[in-house]
Nucleic acid binder design. Structure first.
Lengths: 211, 211
DNA sequence: CTAGTTTCTGGCCATGCGGCCAGAAAACAA
DNA sequence: TTGTTTTCTGGCCGCATGGCCAGAAACTAG
């Protein structure tokens, strides 16, 4: 029999259960990151992990659940990493810079994870063909960024602008920074991040502010 | 026998040949735009066009050639549309604004085409699994944008910044403007474009410049 | 050791895919 | 009209996929 995969918040299942799930998730990340979502079959993921295909079916309800677990784990890692580094900063400008550079640092240290996240985010679909994630799933991130932007507007650091458009553009620029770096591995990701932070600082600052 | 699909620059083949290819390309665009690349099989594209699957094989060397034809056609349409509207403008600031708003106008009028382009761009892979297009294929666009940015820096309109990072971020923001609009159809695309143009004008302008 | 449970293997299944082809049909040429 | 070429149909092929299962193996409890 299969263990009922109840998505309880706390870790559950036997030691083997948890270890296997972690191993399979890690294998999925690696395969997706360097073969692409479309080529990441259960057979490939199993072979890469050195286990039989049936094990995946045994520990996960299906391919979709495995993909969602990957997203949940990687996304939570990024959020924790970035939020930790943002704590303590008060000015909107500092928060903005820190958000961008912290994301870049995390990307540099977790290339495969972030790449796999993007692949799944963009490709996974519901049975009816509509995207499982996609832009709509970034709503939470948009709102977090909007908090920073509104904070800056209220404090007078930032000029008035549409915070939604700024948040969408910010997210896009950060995501594409990653994609560009993946395609051009020699590219200096941290320098790109600093330059990108400059762009948004200039784009947002109040008219009269000193450079 | 099949007509040898020599990719000559000029239109070739019989009247039927040209009409069928156009019809199949149009059908592919519609299917990809609302089912996604992964669900756009030759069978679906043929059914949507009301023809037999074999016709596609008859008029195209394979699925990959069909996808590349879609990309070539849609990409050329966008480039022509935007470049026409940029002609005549001289200041870098005006060129920048025009580029962004013109792209948005084209997107609004050619939603399916642009969506299909993005799907293929992101998903089509070579036999070895590496992306057929992807970020690397945007190199030409990056260089065009860099011309504008360097022009502004040389004329003194723009501050000094890394033109490559600016071009990558610009492309990303425009692409995501489209993705956001597709997910939120009620969103005002033209207003978003004006706001986005403001963002890049502020991000690029020289320190001493008047608002 | 034995009985029961968890975990794993290897293979089978139905489905959908892209490519291909034999021959029908349509368009065209004489 | 007749013969020839172009175009189209419908179906078949080999292949890969995700899901599934019967039984083997490993582990655990008594």
């Amino acid at each position: 029999m299969r263990p009922e995969n109840k998505p309880t918040g706390q870790e559950s299942g036997s030691f083997i259960e948890r270890a296997r799930r972690a191993q399979i998730i890690a294998s999925a990340i690696e395969v997706i990151a360097d073969q692409g979502f479309a080529n990441a079959s259960l057979a490939r993921i199993a072979k890469h992990a050195g286990i039989s295909k049936g094990v995946i079916s045994y520990h996960f309800a299906g391919k979709d659940e495995l993909m969602e677990q990957v997203v949940d784990q990687v996304y939570a890692d990024i959020a924790r990493y970035v939020l930790e580094r943002m704590e303590g900063h008060k000015s909107a400008t500092a928060l903005l810079r820190t958000q961008i550079t912290a994301v870049a640092q995390h990307m540099r240290e977790h290339r495969s994870q972030v790449k796999a996240l993007g692949e799944i985010f963009y490709n996974l679909r519901l049975p009816d063909g509509t995207p499982r994630y996609g832009v709509a799933a970034s709503e939470e991130l948009f709102q977090s960024l909007e908090l920073i932007y509104r904070h800056g507007q209220e404090s007078g650091e930032f000029r008035l602008f549409d915070v939604r458009v700024m948040a969408v553009s910010h997210t896009a620029a950060v995501d594409n920074m990653f994609a560009y770096w993946v395609t051009h591995p020699g590219h200096d990701l941290d320098a790109h991040a600093r330059e990108l932070a400059d762009i948004f600082v200039h784009a947002t600052r109040a008219e009269g502010a000193l450079p």
